[in-house]
Amino acid sequence: MKENQKIRLGISIGDVNGIGCEVILKTFEDARMLDFCTPVIFASNKTISQHKNDLSIKSTFHGIRQASEAVDGKINVVNVWKEAPKIEYGKATKDGGNYAIKSLKAAVVALKEDKIDVLVTAPINKNNVQSEEFKFPGHTDFLAQELKGQSLMFMVADSLRVGLLTDHIAVKDVAESITPQLIRDKVAIMEKSLKMDFGIRRPKIALLGINPHSGDHGTIGEEDDKILKPTIQEFFDKGSLVFGPYSADSFFGSGSHQNFDAILAAYHDQGLIPFKTLSFGKGVNYTAGLEKVRTSPDHGTAYEIAGKGTADESSFKEAVFMAIQIFKNRKDYLELTNNPLQKQKVKRAS
């Protein structure tokens, strides 16, 4: 990014039959958003025009051939394809999935080539995106492959941060998938992200138990005693503030989550049900652990309301703000840790 240039925020449009284009256009219908970043949408003029007209959205856009041509103060649209896809709001079509992946792949290439600074992804349908070229259960696994590093699905809403040990796998496979090494890897990613991306110097992390009541001393499964507890102790012995396992059923309701900078849940619904209940539709899905910044709203394609103009853009807008803030936090962190004089000041202050 050039000096004095706004952050270039790349956007993949997700499923063209869902609410992705709607929440994107509604977010930038407020011209003040252009003071924070330069949006670069990967789609086509025709696609964006149809959604804009169908939904009576007033924002205007600027068509470009590649992300490097993006103009500050405008909503830029990179023409990834020339044709006009058939839009069938509310339907999970093969075309809907194909164009979602075309948009995503073009955005990721631009991100890897530093033509954009961060990426915000609109929702895809995990079924209709599957093809010979794309065999991933979702964005996270694809981005982990493309953007180097081990990823962590990290749900964030203000001070509430919930990560997942396992994400898009069947419940029957959860227990056997959780190993000491997986726990070490995910806690390490979470701890580094809290320091580098969120500016927390000494992060305090809680792990939720795998079984009901964290196994009740082996009465309801032995995984918590044999896998979680010894691994948590390893971190604690090394000076990391990692605690648990905590019984998941009462952890959030009792307010215990407020005592930690982040929570690591054992599986998808254990973490996301309380997160979405508490975040009131303004949560963000952040992929921690990668060399680049990617966020997304915490909702899906919402076919049931697609094309009706009633979608709430709050979560997408929060995803935009979070991507910008994490990009800035990382820059500050890297400048601090790479500056010997600043390192010495931090050492003396502590």
Rank of each mutant, 00 (worst) to 15 (best):
176 E>K: 14
176 E>I: 13
178 I>K: 03
178 I>T: 02
179 T>A: 06
180 P>C: 05
181 Q>R: 10
182 L>S: 06
182 L>W: 05
182 L>D: 03
184 R>E: 02
184 R>W: 07
185 D>E: 08
186 K>E: 01
186 K>Y: 00
187 V>C: 07
187 V>P: 06
188 A>Q: 05
189 I>Y: 01
189 I>H: 00
190 M>V: 04
190 M>N: 02
190 M>D: 00
191 E>P: 02
191 E>R: 09
192 K>M: 09
192 K>H: 12
193 S>N: 09
194 L>Q: 05
194 L>E: 07
195 K>Q: 12
195 K>V: 13
196 M>Q: 11
198 F>S: 05
200 I>G: 01
200 I>W: 03
201 R>M: 04
201 R>G: 04
202 R>Q: 05
203 P>E: 05
203 P>K: 09
203 P>M: 13
204 K>S: 07
205 I>Q: 00
205 I>K: 00
206 A>R: 10
207 L>E: 00
209 G>N: 06
209 G>I: 01
209 G>F: 07
210 I>Y: 01
211 N>H: 09
212 P>N: 11
212 P>D: 09
213 H>A: 12
213 H>F: 10
214 S>F: 13
214 S>D: 04
214 S>W: 09
215 G>N: 11
216 D>L: 15
216 D>R: 11
216 D>K: 15
217 H>K: 15
217 H>Q: 14
218 G>K: 01
219 T>Y: 07
219 T>F: 13
221 G>R: 10
222 E>P: 03
223 E>S: 12
223 E>K: 15
224 D>K: 12
225 D>G: 10
225 D>W: 08
226 K>L: 15
227 I>H: 03
228 L>M: 11
228 L>D: 01
228 L>E: 04
230 P>Y: 08
230 P>S: 13
231 T>E: 12
231 T>M: 11
232 I>G: 00
232 I>N: 01
233 Q>V: 11
234 E>R: 11
234 E>M: 15
236 F>D: 03
236 F>K: 05
237 D>A: 15
239 G>D: 07
239 G>I: 12
239 G>T: 12
240 S>C: 14
242 V>P: 02
242 V>G: 08
242 V>W: 05
243 F>L: 03
243 F>S: 07
244 G>A: 10
244 G>T: 09
